[in-house]
Amino acid sequence: MTLIHPSDTEADLPGAGPPAPSVAPQRPKPPSRLVAMGRSIGWAAVGATVIVLFWAIVARSSPDLPGPSEGFAALRRLLRYPFYDLGPNDKGIGIQLGVSLVKVFTGFAFAVVVGVPLGFLIGGSKRAWAAVNPIIQVLRPVSPLAWFPIGLVVLKDVGNAATFVIFITSLWPTVLNTAAGAASVPTDQRNVARVFKFGRVAYVRHVVVPHSLPSIITGMRLSMGIAWMVIVAAEMLAGNTGIGYFVWNSYNGGKLADVIAAIVLIGGIGVLLDTAFLRLGRKVAA
């Protein structure tokens, strides 16, 4: 086989000899991905600039509020040594964020372990749904922080109480989304399972779980988003370690610039968490 350079092929085609001046039709080029990406980054920069300008104007008229330059300086300072550890009241921001992430993932993991089977149960059985749903509907609107004292009494440790709050936070979206997925198995698939005498295990494994997987991931993504918001408040209450404690401690120490820097970092990590679950969801749906 001979390799032909792409630019030569046209001349080799019969009827497209050298004298023929005819031009092959050109498909109009769609804008390249790089251009599209550059464009969206540009607009994001515009938005960010407007916010920073607004912040600078507000900070100028309010002397207690640090301006953008102080905020960015604090961010740079915090990120220079993120993992230093000078005793219980003075740790780097990386350690604080790490502590919070461990609490969030622990509480979240317990919520998945409890919530997914519970969701399958109430999604698959009308009786279980009738028994459990009213309880969920009553408990769901309660701020998870209200559970903090109960966690404290039962677990006797502020850190564990914060983890318990995250567990409660993550539980409801996980249960409800799993139940919605399990309850929406198409009649066709249910009939297949019935006609071919699928046992309970085969039915759950081959029909319910595959069908519910996308909504389970959605539930996990919602849970994680709320959990990451709630952890800051829970740690302010706990007053021990973690990013929430860091924010509160910085405020008490009069370091408002650190608070602002922490807000930016919390937001950034929130985006990363959300993106990770979004990707996971897409992968599962494929």
Partner: peptide, 21 residues
């Protein structure tokens, strides 16, 4: 409407049904 289980291969669709029944 065929009613195959969408996340199983064709082989697994036939085998799981045969195994269960």
């Amino acid at each position: 409407n065929y009613s195959l289980l969408p996340r199983l291969s064709l082989l697994a669709n036939v085998r799981e049904a045969a195994k269960a029944a």
